[in-house]
């Protein structure tokens, strides 16, 4: 994954007749977190403002609005505190933790991200909380005490990415067998598979096939 790539089909120089050769894009895994400038629009200012007022200005490391969705980056040791405030404050009221998922960005120092999607049924709002930890100390606070629904989802994130949730009542593997080694959804974990012959052609396993930038 390079920092900068050009063109729709990744063609360098001439040869791209599509007219998309002028596009320049950046990979998300390498650029630094840059907060969106206020005002964020919609209810986003209100949510971020309330959170900062209750937990201090430094609670949000970065606030990003992209494609109409609000992402608040927080520290891994403040997750439980932030979630409790998000759930209990009258102006926030995020009653439902819709989803907890892990993402692995292998190029980053803090490569393991945990992403929480909270839903406020009262105000019909959505917020994404994101936190990142490194492999040397992959510890994130558990939110099971605030949102019991996070129980299995944190176990899945542990199973698949190796993120350790501090305070989880029984952090064990859930989808993979108990004695499995490794965390399958990390980017450096191979997909596996075998090559097949089809009509005389040799077809390599999916993770060895040609890939396009």
């Amino acid at each position: 994954m390079s920092d900068q790539e050009q063109g729709l089909f990744g063609v360098a120089g001439t040869g791209d007749t599509s007219g998309f050769g002028g596009l320049v894009r950046q990979s998300p895994s390498t650029f630094e977190l840059v907060s969106t400038a206020a005002p964020l629009g919609g209810y986003f200012d209100e949510v971020v403002g309330a959170l900062r007022e209750l937990l201090g200005e430094d609670v949000a490391r970065a606030v990003i609005v992209d494609r109409g969705e609000l992402t608040i980056h927080i520290a891994p040791d403040r997750v439980a505190e932030v979630c409790k405030t998000m759930r209990d404050d009258e102006g926030l009221r995020f009653e439902l933790c819709s989803s907890v998922s892990g993402v692995d960005y292998p190029d980053q120092r803090n490569r393991l991200h945990v992403v929480y999607h909270l839903t406020s049924m009262t105000y019909r709002r959505n917020v994404r909380l994101e936190t990142a930890v490194g492999l040397d100390h992959p510890v994130v606070q558990s939110v099971t005490a605030v949102y019991p629904t996070a129980d299995w989802q944190e176990r899945e994130a542990y199973d698949m990415f190796g993120v350790v949730f501090e305070g989880h009542p029984h952090l064990t593997r859930i989808l993979m067998p108990d004695d499995w080694e490794g965390h399958p959804q990390r980017k450096d974990y191979p997909l596996g598979g075998i090559a097949v012959e089809y009509k005389g052609a040799h077809i390599p396993p999916p993770d060895e096939r040609r890939s396009y930038k």
């Binding site: 994954m1 790539e5 894009r25 950046q26 990979s27 998300p28 895994s29 992209d66 494609r67 969705e69 992402t71 819709s98 989803s99 998922s101 993402v103 692995d104 992403v115 999607h117 839903t119 959505n126 994404r128 959804q185 890939s211 396009y212 930038k213």
Partner: peptide, 29 residues
């Protein structure tokens, strides 16, 4: 590149997709 979360009402409840793209031709996550 970017990430989105879309949720729809499936027969069993909220079905959400958290999709992350790195700008390539394949899903990043």
């Amino acid at each position: 590149a970017g990430q989105v979360y879309t949720a729809i009402e499936a027969p069993r409840g909220e079905l959400g997709i958290h999709a992350v793209s790195d700008g390539g031709t394949r899903p990043f996550r």
